[in-house]
Design a protein around this nucleic acid. Structure first.
Lengths: 148, 148
DNA sequence: GTATATTGTTGTTATTAACAACATAAATCA
DNA sequence: TGATTTATGTTGTTAATAACAACAATATAC
């Protein structure tokens, strides 16, 4: 009969381990697609949130604008992103993905999802659903904690 | 009625988000205790696996020996770790923690666990247990995939 | 007893990421 | 309208993370 505290300890260990394993998985599986982890996150954010200004992208990614500027620079150099000037505001830039950028993200996403699928292949749907629920709550809680 | 593939997609999103949030959370909450994230992992590994040689520590942490050497160096400089020569093997070093090192890890661990506890405060025990089960399986699966 | 292997450190490089300073452009206000 | 302030991005600098290569010192094998 576990207490809440013991569950919290178990959760700490479980999340810790998962994060460490994923640090390596990410490096392995994203690097071989010609982009770094940060570049892949930017790619993903641009796919999901559509064309964005640099400032908006930085906010979505919780990164400093300077860091974001350099990450985007790499995507531009590699031909995965486009930078267009905003006619309404000469300071601002609109960031979007090229066809290659969209295609690359689609490829990466598919391979990562295939990995997740193979991991849950022999786990019951109920367990998966329960875990999804908690993972979501943990993320919301962690984000709230950061914001506060 | 979700399919396995949709669950895999949901899982990919959930894990992704959790990892990104934790990247920031870890930096915030560990840095203010005077050690970096990597140093904290080393501290933890030394607490759990006892005194280790540098090579063994590197293997436990899945890091290169050179990276590990420098992380340990920082812990030595800060007075959290000790390096003793192995009388049996003049090349090797035994790494252990000082009382300060043990105390620091204990403090950090407690604060991180308190965070987890506050996150699961209003989530039913069944859900937490199910999620713990899956997190464990995901970690094992991801590690197996890395090893292979 | 020489050759090979192991252990750890140092040199070098790349990514991730923040903060500060800056240039340019827009908005405000006097 | 013109001066001040604010917003947007880029560049300079610094630190952490982390790998690979080269190296020195020691240990093991042949």
């Amino acid at each position: 009969m576990d207490s809440k505290l013991q569950r919290a300890e178990a959760l700490y260990e479980a999340v810790n381990q998962l994060i460490r394993v994923h640090q390596f998985r990410d490096r392995e599986s994203i690097y071989c697609h010609n982009v770094s982890v940060a570049q892949c996150y930017a790619l993903e954010t641009l796919v999901k949130r559509g064309p964005l200004r640099l400032k908006a992208l930085a906010e979505e990614m919780c990164l400093d604008k300077s860091t974001t500027s350099r990450v985007v620079d790499a995507l531009l150099r590699k031909g995965y992103a486009l930078k267009t000037l905003d006619p309404q505001d000469q300071r601002a830039v609109q960031l979007s993905l090229t066809a290659e950028g969209h295609a690359l993200y689609s490829t990466i996403r598919k391979s990562l999802i295939a990995e997740e699928a193979s991991m849950i292949a022999d786990i019951s749907d109920d367990v998966v659903d329960a875990a999804l629920e908690l993972l979501g709550k943990l993320t919301v809680a962690a984000r709230a904690r950061l914001g506060a």
